[in-house]
Design a binder for these strands. Structure first.
Lengths: 199, 199, 199, 199
DNA sequence: AATGAATGAGCGTTCATTCAT
DNA sequence: GATGAATGAACGCTCATTCAT
């Protein structure tokens, strides 16, 4: 049922297992309804041992969020690297973001959206700074698409609409359903650059 | 700062004041981080008295959600009633949903999305049933738009993409900014039926 | 075994019973080794109920200390009021302080000395300010004794020596032993003004 | 700032450094508020290694106390050895005890007084037995003073009053202040044998 | 001897809920 | 209806101690 977590820090070490279990539980129950005993039990350790790896429950949340932001920023960068055509870049970004949200990092990404306010204020700031790098990539590509005549709308607004479409997919998208991630990406792309003329 | 709550049940009665305060607090802090004492204090009663009006804290959440679903379903119905043109209907629905999400019922709508998992299972079922009526209106209109040739995509998918765009607006839309609700609605409409040829 | 606590706030109310029990336990085991469950059990309430009366365990300690400081300051004032002879005043002060330390407020006074560092910094400040009133009375009387020729030593030093003698009594004085409080007071007085010529 | 610890066992060995650090920390924070990790960190070892030197945290406390009792008993013996005049002996004892309490062994002596109840019962017994040797020296000298006509009061009571005056000095005496240890010793001596006639 | 991850009982505190008044 | 003291289970977290390496 759970997607395997492929984020770098979530390996087989106790710390990695803790992060994976936490991401899964935070998503399933929410941060506040997940107890440190739950996380420890899932990881096969005692609750006190958890605090050898993280200074607090909130620190686990912060680490999950930072890891997933960094991992997906790297994925975004790979998606545009070496791609010349702005529309092809945009397609790559949409696919990458969907992959984040409904694919391999689905749990951590959902946590990022839904448990944001459980982060301490100073951690919010740090996460926001990391997130800004991610958004920069999007805006650069969207500007390129517009400059190339692929769309007329304001890139900032368009980014937000795309973000809504991709984020919301976590609420309904079924990877086992008839529509796969690339198909959904194409649908979203059409909302931005219009549908191609029918065959 | 807080939007006035105009949902029917949120009137000047103790019960109504309790619901308004709860919606505001649930949005600001989350359900789990809002205590019944917080809600009672904001309403000017003692925490014990709250249980004369609601059987539990979760019951307050459920009531907030049901009220906002019903209120906005009625708003949706008004938006399509007597409108013949499917595209005009769709514009009305988008405006109505945006009004729900970033306008007068913003708090309760945000709670509906973010605190869903705090609902007891049987309450989730009831709320889902009420929500189905709401979604029926959307799908009927989207089918009409497609049948009239206004778009080619699958209405079910399109509805989900629209829902994402409108819901996400709660995270960024600023009613005091340069873009008003109708302007944003137009942007979203263009994602569905394409942009008009430029002037 | 336990001395009855006669400090004003330590009455039959839940709050008063809590303070008495806390003073007794803090003395017997120390603040850190006394749990809130211990205090609650002794008072016949549940541990959670304790926090309706005090905001924290440390708040109980602070309250015990402030009550005993104020109570014994009042006792000191009574001891000198209307007494003209400085030596008689001094005798009254010594008796009063001994009464505090080994008599009716023995537990709270011992706690005041031994658990001082368990007070939060801002509470230490407040307690110190209250204590200053107490010490003022002592110094006024000791100055009077010196000015009247009753002793030659520095009143500040003498006060500290007396304070040591009285405080230390909590470690050895047995009210059931051959020496009563007044007898001990006389011994201490002689350390200050010298022993009378033998009969 | 910290006085150098000169007690025999507190040398440069890991064990000695552990004892010194423990004495300092126990005084500064109290036994219960000092963690074995604190002690280990100050000594430059890991917390687990501490248990190669002491069987428990309480064992460290016990060792600190026993070392300081033995060290200061030896100092007391030196102070009276070869001194014929009982008053001179008494002066030596007072100076020696003050040196213990506010001088080179200040930290361990304060711990001895304030953390007594943190000792296990059987360790209290052993420490009490060692302390009895110390007190014997005091009583022998005080009896000699009385027999020589230097005072009239009961030696047992006088010892307790002196003990109070010296112990309490840890709360106020400032070695950098105008009064030095010998000056304070003289003040205490005068409380016992009376002040000399003024010049 | 030294390490440091792991333990697990126990801590102070919170808070939805109850109920006598 | 309203009160507010009381409940008690559950929480995040601490820390002396153990032990495989």
């Amino acid at each position: 049922m759970a997607q395997p977590q492929i984020v770098n820090g979530m390996d087989d070490s106790p710390r990695g297992k803790l992060l994976s279990a936490a991401a899964r539980l935070f998503r399933a129950r929410g941060f506040d309804r997940t107890t440190v005993r739950d996380i420890a039990r899932e990881t096969g350790i005692q609750s006190g041992s958890l605090f050898h790896h993280f200074s607090s429950k909130e620190d686990i949340l912060f680490t999950v969020m930072m890891e997933v932001i960094r991992f997906n920023t790297a994925r975004l960068q790979e998606a545009v690297q070496g791609v010349a055509d702005p529309v092809a870049q945009l397609r790559g970004l949409i696919r990458a973001e969907l992959q984040s949200i409904v694919g391999d990092t689905a749990e951590a990404m959902t946590v990022l959206v839904y448990e944001w306010r459980c982060l301490a204020a100073e951690h919010q700031e740090q996460a926001l700074a990391a997130r800004a790098v991610y958004e920069r990539i999007w805006l650069d590509t969207l500007h390129a698409v517009r400059d190339a005549g692929g769309m007329r709308a304001d890139p900032v607004i368009v980014r937000r609409l795309i973000n809504g479409m991709t984020s919301w997919a976590s609420n309904w998208f079924d990877p086992a359903g008839p529509l796969d991630i690339d198909g959904l990406a194409e649908q979203i792309l059409h909302r931005v650059i219009g549908e191609p003329a029918s065959p």
